[in-house]
Amino acid sequence: MACILTFIEQRNGAIRKASLEALSEAKRLAGQGGWQVCAVIAGNGVSGLAPGLGAYGAGTVYVADEDTLERYSAEGYAEVVKAAVQACQPVAVLMAGTALGRDLSGRAAARLGVGCLADVTQLRVEGGALVAVRPVYSGKALATVDGGSATPVVVTLRPNVFPAEAGEGSAQVATLPGVSVPIRAVIRELRAKEAGELDVAEADVIVSGGRGVKGPEHFALIRTLADSLGAAVGASRAVVDAGWIEHAHQVGQTGKVVSPSLYVACGISGAIQHLAGMSSSKVIVAINKDAEAPIFKVADYGVIGDLFQVIPPLVDEIRKLKAES
């Protein structure tokens, strides 16, 4: 029986949520295609994570557990993907479109001599093969794509788009042979961001500020709103370039592409390059004093008004609603 393989990303022994989204999608596709569900995980001391993937539908989990895989490397992890592909001969390899997945997918696909469908937001099975939809031209168009004749096609799934669904079950574990290729580009140092600061790329709720915030000293207001919602703080390029906040917070074409369940844009006009990064958010809220601002065209909810007058009572109301529940 043919299978579909999902690469599972872990960091410090914790499986990334986006990988469980990919595995859950693999299970759904396997139902349509009549395939088995396999997974592969790499790292050092990660074998214990493998059986639990059965709850998300994995029948067999291939494990590469070695010192040399302690930290991510594209060269080493591509070899693990290749070994798993040789072991189970899948029709497709799915992975989360995280920073790691977006780096690994191209290297792994080239090593396998196959194509890659990057950053997809919809998947289905047609004629025994995967067909995907992915945003192109900064989200201004949607392309329906497939992998042509080469198998297995490699696919990265945009995080936060596909639901992760846990059930019951335990997976069988199979050990992969050791990685013997040279690993030349290595991570020498890993600097974690300040504790407690949520990254926009992973957040379920994002509150972003733009030039309408007027100055770096007023970003505290954006942070207060973000705190009330348990959100990460995002920003437009204009304010990143002005040095009000670091580039890590930038959302858009030259920043991060996000799809949280709630995105609140404050004092952001909604330039096409900003929309490129957030238009796939589930609920979009805009607060802007200009009724003609393009951000209102993509907003599900909006307030035309001065953010300095709207945000403080909004924070009070959100706190009140949250306290009630």
């Binding site: 307030v303 035309i304 008004g305 007058q309 403080p312």
Partner: peptide, 14 residues
């Protein structure tokens, strides 16, 4: 999209 006018009564719109 539901766009509220918040120029006159920002707190009410919020």
């Amino acid at each position: 999209g539901t766009i509220l006018k918040g120029e006159e009564d920002p707190a009410g719109a919020a």
